[in-house]
Each structure stands twice: as C-alpha cells, then as structure tokens.
Design a protein around this nucleic acid. Structure first.
Lengths: 188, 188
DNA sequence: TTGCATACTTACTAACTAGTAAGTACGTTT
DNA sequence: AAACGTACTTACTAGTTAGTAAGTATGCAA
C-alpha cells in the first residue's frame, strides 16, 4: 500500500518529467506544489534515481494493465490499436506532455544507470506488445503492411514519440496528421 | 568572421546539447573542455539563450546550404532524400547524438523564448523543404505515397527524430529499421 | 504507559549554476 | 608613443541543486 503523499509525489514528478524533462525539475518543485518541505519528498524517495525508477515502473504497470484488459475483452485489432493511440492522445491533451520514451530518450546519457535499465525494459515491453498486435492483425486481414511486424512497431512508436515533440514546437495538427498517416499506412 | 574560440564553443555546445540536452550542460563544461575559464565563454555568449540561439541558427544555415547544394547539382529525388537521411545517420554514428528537434522538443517548455522561436523556424524550414521534395518526387514517379506531401514529410521527420532516441535506449538496428521502413513506404 | 514506527519539519551542507565586475596582456590604429 | 579594441583571467555573487541529520507530532501495539 502506497501512502497518499507518496502517490501524489509520483503524479507530480511524472508530470514534471514529461513536461520539462528529468534535468529540469527538482525536489523543491515537487514539495512546493504539495505544500510540504523538500525533506518530506526525500523521506519517500531518498534519491532522484529512486523516484525516476518508480515513475517508469508505474508506467510499465499501467501499460501492462491496459493491454491485459484489452486482451481479456477480446477487442478487435483496430480497437486495441486505438487504445494504444489513446495513451499518446492523452499526453497531447494534457498540456502537451511528451511520452516517457521521448522525454527519457533525449536525456538518456544523463540518467542514473538504474533508470536507464528501467527505460530499456519499458521500451521493449511496448515494442513486444505492438509487434504481436500487428502480427495477429495482419493474419486476420485487419492490418496491411510490408516487412516484419517488429520493424513496423518500431516505426509507429518512434513516429508517435516524435509527433508529441513536434506538436509542442508547431501545433496539434501535426500530431493528428501523424496519427492519420500511421493509420492510413496500416489500412488496405 | 567568427573567432576560432567562438566556433569551438559552438561546436562543443552543440555536441553537449545533442548528447545531454539543454538543461544538462553548463558554461563550466564548455570552458573546461576548451581549457579556458567560464567567463571567457560568457565573453562570446553573454547568456545561455544567446548560445542556444546561435546553435540553432548555425544548424539552420547548414541545412540551407546542404539543400541548396543538392538542388544546384540537380540530384534525383532519391539522392536528395539520401542526403537528408545522412544528417540523421551522422548523428547516430557521432556517439548516438539526437537531432536538434528531438533534443529541443523534449525540453521545449524550459527553453528561453528566443530559442523557442528559433526552433519553430528550423522545424518549418525542414518541413517545407521535405514537403517540396516529396511533392516533386511523386510528380516524377520516383516516390509513391498516400495523402498530402506535408503529412508525409511530418511523419518522416518525427520518425527519424524518435528513431535516434530509441536507438540510444535499445540499439542501432532499430534506427536502421526505421530508415528501411520509411524508404519502403516511399517506394512503389 | 511505554515503546516504536510513520510521516513529517527544521536547519543545514557541499556542489554546481548562470552571470558579472574589474583587471590584464597584446596587437593594431592614430 | 598613446589610445583603443579584442580576448581573455581572476575573483566573485546569488540562486538552485540533491541530499542529510536531528528533532517532533501522532497513532498504534505490547
């Protein structure tokens, strides 16, 4: 059981991470938003690395839950794909947040090693799941694409990560443009 | 005419920016790599914003030069596209640097306003050029793709930005995978 | 009621940050 | 020879950073 404060810290820190990046938020930012002292944040997360690791772990667990749920509901490939896209749509609508892969990838070489390992796990899990969805969707004639499914999964994931970054520089239409293009490229 | 030192500062700062991100390098990093004092860097670039702006301006000017040269040589669409891809290939081979759009997009909301403006100009120039190349390449039956050229240009640019970030997290094959997929999606 | 764990606050440190003011060495112009 | 601009160094500041040590209030268990 996580305490209320610990959960709030995680919420705020994840938000800041996807808004400003890992090297542009501090314990003080978090504590002042919560109306507590920075030492209280250190009580729950002794180091910034431990905090960063927990942010990624929670995202991994959320992703696993979303995909398991979609799987247990026996949704069609296109419906499952749309649930996947919703993750990115939500980031965009939530003050132009960038996805975790984008935020952490850009700062990757400045991250503590424990976080780097966790990011690797996360990216591979996303790629594994999407690859499987594309593969089975192609078998059932729902998706059409050239090449192997993992390549396509990689292309889609990198496009979406880049699209969120592009959207904050230019405007939201570029993001929706990418989504439409990705969908068009999967359709017959 | 720029001085030798000023050019070296720009080289090192651009490198650090594409390696660690704007919020993870300091005047001290630059000066110590050059064997000078941090005040000497401030002499050439009074503020970090002025330094950041110059990094982007130089990249814009380099891009304009590359594309103008390709244009004046009357290269085929595929050759021009390959020159464009070389920019990204070079970033990858140069210690897994990320492209400027990716680095600055991830930290966008922490950037001084002058830099934000400069990034916008850069992204639009890249998009304009690629859109035109795709359009004329399609007219001449060299490229095949659905939808309008600017959408395709957006998809390609975001894929490549994301691919460089993904490559440092996982491995280089993911980057080449994206390049191959992008090319396949442009071919007949 | 004593003891202990939880969840903090107070008060601090050492390192690093961008940025500045004043001085210096040196080559060029007048 | 005097004056000036360029390219620095020395020496500093004020603010921010992650992280710590010691103390405190509260509630629960023995």
């Amino acid at each position: 059981m996580q305490t209320d404060t610990k959960n709030k810290i995680l919420d705020i820190a994840a938000d800041l991470l996807q808004d400003k990046g890992f090297n542009a938020f501090s314990y003080h930012h978090i504590s002042s938003l919560l109306g507590i002292k920075n030492a209280a944040v250190h009580y729950h997360y002794p180091t910034k690395e431990s905090l960063g690791i927990d942010i990624i772990r929670r995202a991994r667990s959320n992703f696993a839950q979303i995909t398991q749920e979609a799987s247990s509901l026996h949704l069609y490939p296109w419906q499952q794909f749309d649930i996947f896209l919703d993750i990115y749509r939500k980031n965009l609508s939530d003050n132009h947040k960038v996805c975790l892969m984008g935020s952490l990838g850009a700062a990757y070489f400045t991250l503590p090693s424990g976080m780097q390992e966790e990011v690797k796990l996360m990216v591979n899990e996303i790629l594994d799941w999407l690859t499987q969805l594309l593969e089975s969707g192609r078998s059932s004639n729902n998706f059409t694409f050239k090449g192997d499914a993992r390549s396509k999964a990689t292309l889609i994931t990198t496009s979406l990560a880049g699209a969120l970054q592009m959207a904050r520089i230019t405007d939201n239409t570029h993001f929706h443009t990418v989504i439409d293009q990705v969908k068009a490229d999967l359709s017959n």
